[in-house]
Design a protein around this nucleic acid. Structure first.
Lengths: 259, 259
DNA sequence: TTCTATTTGTTCGTATGTATG
DNA sequence: ACATACATACGAACAAATAGA
């Protein structure tokens, strides 16, 4: 190897995770643990710089991530106000971002109940939002609260047949299917369109969850879309009452871009 | 501390709009006008720097605002891909913004079933996220699909007692309570924190909706927060199966998180 | 009231790390 | 291997809003 150029000031030392992410995680943890009560001010930015030994730029990136999660609200000349602890994972799960989705997938064991190659009839094609007549995979899975615990989700996942390799990997990996597709085919998920509603469980879903057929369940439909607008995956998951919770903060967008 | 430099140094240009906001508006306009088609790449950041004669930092702030609007997606080593030409309008009961919420409220007739002045006991205070012991208003309302139609929502709305004037106006106005509070007291809503879950309806809610007690319903809890972080209103609305659908698009986080 | 210290917002500059093609 | 492009990170300075003296 060639001699490395000596850095003038800080040694770069490979940060496994970006510093702003570490800072953000620490602050989030403090807020959730109650160390910063709702309504109170976070320490000022210069103070956080000293405490974490990072630049103000890094602190502001971390604070922006807290802002985007709805945990704080910053006012010029005043400070950053803690908005909510948003704790209470007493039961159920709260998913408001792709990260939360991954977290949820990693934290709850998944059973693959079966995979089948199907031809998409017009009715299914209409629901999927694709052309009929092409072969797709249908995967049935179930999620448990913990290993051996109660069922909290029954899912049907649909992907075009070309992703068969990822489908086969599914049984050996705890990752969600879209993550496997991303890793294996290099397609990047740009967005996930989700719909939440209360529906009556089908017979198969009720059986998976141990409910009576027709029981009311939370239904989440997801469409995974890549950056070119292509449909990569469609899923329908149903959850028994109390097993799923979705949290979301909507903000007034009045030109306040936060740098 | 002591002596010092005069505070006034150069004649400051009067605060126009921030540069990043001007840049963002220009880029949004170009995307909307079709100069940058969906799927295409935006000019690179250094190129935008030269064109707008601003620093790369400013360009990145502008691009982040485009990202947050769902217009672009940036990928390291590749570029910024145009995702859409406009913020997509949602349909149905989808409420992705405060405007959508207002739209929904205006489109369905509301009945005020009763208002009561209550003292907040510790249990309620814990749920509301406020101090116990203070007087609040509790308003019971119901929404119908159309006048005389089926009930699609039963709500309990809680506001501090000081907003009594807005509460009294509620019977005469079709506007939602938070809009009345905004008009009358000048507090403006900065964000709304929402939680969606499936729960068993209480006896009162079931009666409002014409269901059996304990029926599974979609429950939406909302906390309305002003720009100072103050809690203005808390509501719990329950909807019978099929009457409520929530649509939401989550996008890849930019620059933050992603382990 | 005015003044002042504090705090966040905006903007520049520079350097390096890392993914992509 | 290489150039390109975005991501991360440091430093500096001033502007603007806020709150308290």
């Amino acid at each position: 190897m060639t001699a490395k150029k000596k850095p003038v000031r800080a040694a770069p030392q490979r940060a496994a995770r970006p510093k702003h992410s570490v800072v953000a995680a620490a602050l989030i943890d403090e807020i959730r643990s109650g160390r910063h009560a709702p309504g109170a001010l976070l320490p000022s930015e210069p103070e956080l710089c000293r405490r974490f030994e990072v630049s103000r730029h890094t602190i502001r990136v971390a604070l922006r991530s807290l802002y985007e999660k709805g945990l704080i609200l910053s006012r010029q000349g005043h400070g950053s106000i803690v908005q909510a602890t948003a704790v209470e994972p007493r039961y159920g799960f709260a998913c408001s971002s792709i990260d939360d989705l991954l977290q949820y997938a990693a934290a709850t064991p998944r059973e693959v109940l079966g995979t089948a190659r199907i031809d998409v009839d017009p009715a299914l094609a209409s629901w999927l939002g694709c052309e009929p007549g092409y072969p797709w995979w249908e995967i049935r899975t179930r999620r448990l609260q913990e290993a051996g615990g109660a069922a909290i989700a029954s899912s049907r996942v649909y992907v075009p047949e070309v992703y068969g390799a990822a489908v086969r990997e599914l049984k050996k990996s705890p990752l969600p299917l879209f993550a496997l597709m991303e890793a294996r085919y290099g397609h990047h998920i740009a967005q996930i369109r989700q719909t939440f509603s209360v529906v009556a469980a089908t017979a198969g879903e009720a059986a998976d969850l141990g409910l009576e057929a027709g029981a009311a369940v939370m239904c989440v439909e997801r469409r995974f879309i890549d950056e070119r607008g292509g449909l990569l995956e469609v899923s329908r998951s149903v959850h028994p009452p109390g097993a799923f919770r979705y949290e979301l903060t909507v903000r007034q967008m009045l030109g306040t871009e936060r740098p």
